[in-house]
Design a binder for these strands. Structure first.
Lengths: 145, 145
DNA sequence: GTCTGATCATCAGCAGTGCTGACGATCAGA
DNA sequence: TCTGATCGTCAGCACTGCTGATGATCAGAC
């Protein structure tokens, strides 16, 4: 049986391939949709975290996104240069930077949210709403395992 | 509505996050399972393509895997150094290299296939077989769109 | 035959990403 | 006041994937 593979004959059936390319496709769609706003899907992830939390430290944001704290630095540098976020020392713990959306950042986020939703719809256009929520639920289950 | 986001409040709900981390988790599991064999999940993809085709040119393999032809060079270099594949000029078109599994490569592939299947099962352990095939089908649909 | 344009594998170089390890500043507790 | 830990930052490394160039080769036009 192990020398007579059948179901794995098509590399396109392999989960790793499917996940990788699904991710690539969605990212490409999102990046294209967000490009007019001057941000990409990675930036958008950061904005989303900031928009839905109390002003957070850099580390908290990074951990929520699942990226390294050193990677977060450059990401925030770029967003700060664009006037989308601000950093200021946390008065209660001056080791920390409090990261917040600026007013402009909030406007950018609102526009970005629409753009991203559109990209996600495009990505999901081929499957039904039921299949979509099932898909999302499955992914969540696989991760929280 | 766009200023009152609800379903997107949790960054972990976002498709991009879910896909990325699902991919990361599966890759980590597969790499760990394949590590004793001296290969990783990327190498395994190459082996699978080679095992299920007529001896193919480098370009064909790269296109099947969806990676760049220049990336394929280094990948095959490593596999050749390990004695898993061979390259020889195609007699009918000497611009091409015919890439083939060696006998050792075939043995490695057989072992790798079992190891990878085990990793995939671990990854999918939390969902039912029905949900698994549904999941696979959905991914395929999203990509062939 | 001989050009011309295309194809293939390779290589150098570049950009993006993520990591480790170090640093200074700061905090919390002994 | 010490000691050890934490946070943000930075330099440096590794990995990946890309572009653009090169040399060898092929196929078709003439």
């Amino acid at each position: 049986m192990s020398t007579e593979p059948s179901t794995t004959a098509d590399p396109h059936e392999v989960l790793g391939y499917l996940l990788k390319h699904a991710n690539l496709k969605l990212t490409a769609l999102a990046d294209a949709a967000l490009e007019p706003l001057g941000i990409d899907s990675k930036d958008f992830g950061t904005l989303r975290v900031l928009a839905h939390r109390e002003p957070a430290s850099q580390l908290q944001v990074a951990q929520t996104l699942g990226i390294d704290r050193t990677t977060m630095v450059a990401l925030l540098d770029a967003l700060e240069r664009k006037g989308i976020i601000t950093r200021r020392p946390d008065p209660t713990d001056r080791r920390r930077n409090v990261v917040e959306l600026t007013d402009q950042g909030l406007r950018t986020y609102d526009a970005a949210q629409e753009a991203y939703a559109k990209a996600e719809s495009t990505f999901l256009a081929a499957i039904s709403p039921t299949a979509t929520s099932q898909f999302r639920r499955t992914l969540r289950t696989l991760l929280t395992d």
